[in-house]
Write a protein that binds this DNA or RNA. Structure first.
Length: 360
DNA sequence: AAGCCGGGGCA
DNA sequence: TGCCCAGGCTT
């Protein structure tokens, strides 16, 4: 390690000692709790994941209790956090540890990496935080800090970019205290070397920062970018019979997999009620349902995600015969709805039903 | 290599 | 609006 690298590592650790955030998962060496925190924090801000972490370790104090739980319960606990494959994989990984590692969390980089939902970043994080394994983390913060420090314009969302930054990060790694170093560079990126308008004049590394010297801090890191946003059109049927409503589980490999929702008809474009009533799925669902009365809900929910815009219409439907419906869907009392994991979109619909005056 | 997967905060 | 967030899996 050359002198500049050593200066950079030491400066970042020194900065961390004065500015670090106090976070509950930093007060433990328990790999289980560290793992939970890392999965929750993937593509998720600390403020958004904090309460989920507390609830998770409170509900499942150890990995065996998590492994023995139902996936529905895990997803319910995850509800609202997004990227639900994280919850499904978390549950799978808990069972991996229970069944393949005799219930004790794996201690080598390769074994940790073998867990479902754990990639190179997360394996390095868990390995260094819990076991001081000498692997540098490379996350969004590290990409940003290193690309600016060395003015690297290789796109970070390419395989060559990932390889390049991983090598560089491992050169800078303080192998005597990898856990501390990894925490330091991530907090440094999250609080000092922030994406927008960083306070470079007050940065302890400004003298070593090539991007700052060139006055081009804002142009790093470089991304190929391009995530296209596609539109989808959902028509939800809020069907009522006595005090019951009907739901189904989304089992396809699609958004919100294994969450629950109202009976859904997805269409290629926005349809009027009259057009919707002409579709095959609609007549299928409501055939032999007796006397049917349909009331369109007055609002359309526009649900914006990073790569999708979903326009959701809702129809309140009263029926007088559910002999076919109850076989096709899950029939529940409306009060039972809280027991099922649902998407924010469906959640917002029920919120607006309960408090129509509230603007959401 | 590219596409997919959520939800929210911020300028 | 666009960008980003302690990324990983599937195709």
């Amino acid at each position: 390690m050359n002198q500049d690298s050593q200066f950079i590592s030491r400066t970042i650790i020194e900065w961390y000692n004065h500015h670090k955030r106090d976070l509950p998962w930093r007060e433990t060496k328990d790999p289980y709790r560290i793992w939970i925190s890392e999965i929750i924090l993937q593509q998720t801000r600390v403020v958004q994941g904090y309460d989920y972490y507390i609830r998770f370790v409170d509900t499942f104090p150890d990995i065996i209790q998590l492994a023995d739980a139902d996936e529905d319960q895990v997803l319910k606990l995850w509800q609202g956090l997004g990227y639900y494959s994280r919850a499904r994989n978390l549950h799978t990984a808990a069972k991996q540890v229970r069944d393949n590692f005799k219930g004790s969390f794996p201690r080598t980089y390769e074994d940790i990496l073998s867990l479902k939902g754990v990639g190179e970043y997360t394996a390095a994080a868990i390995g260094s935080f819990a076991f001081e394994l000498p692997y540098a983390v490379v996350d969004g913060n590290v990409f940003r800090v290193l690309s600016r420090l060395f003015a690297i314009d290789t796109p970070i969302d390419t395989s060559t970019g990932k390889k390049l930054f991983t090598e560089l990060a491992n050169e800078l790694l303080d192998t005597k205290q990898p856990g501390l170093y990894n925490q330091s560079i991530m907090d440094f990126g999250a609080l000092q070397c922030v994406p927008q308008s960083p306070d470079c004049p007050n940065c302890p590394l400004s003298d070593k920062c090539m991007a700052y010297a060139q006055g081009k801090v804002s142009s790093y890191p470089v991304k190929q970018g391009k995530t296209k946003v596609k539109e989808r059109f959902f028509n939800y049927l809020d069907i009522h019979y006595k005090n019951n409503t009907y739901i189904q589980k989304r089992t396809a490999n699609d958004i919100w997999k294994n969450l629950y929702e109202l009976p859904l008809i997805e269409t290629g474009s926005e349809l009027t009620l009259e057009e919707l009533q002409q579709t095959q799925p609609f007549t299928d669902i409501l055939q032999n349902a007796g006397n049917i009365s349909i009331r369109p809900v007055s609002f359309t929910l526009k649900h914006i995600l990073s790569h999708r815009i979903i326009y959701a219409k809702f129809y309140k439907i009263d029926i007088t015969d559910d002999t076919l419906l109850k076989d096709r869907f899950i029939k529940i009392d409306k009060s039972q709805l809280d027991n099922y994991a649902i998407s924010r979109l469906v959640d917002k619909y029920f919120e607006k039903q309960a408090k129509p005056d509230l603007f959401l």
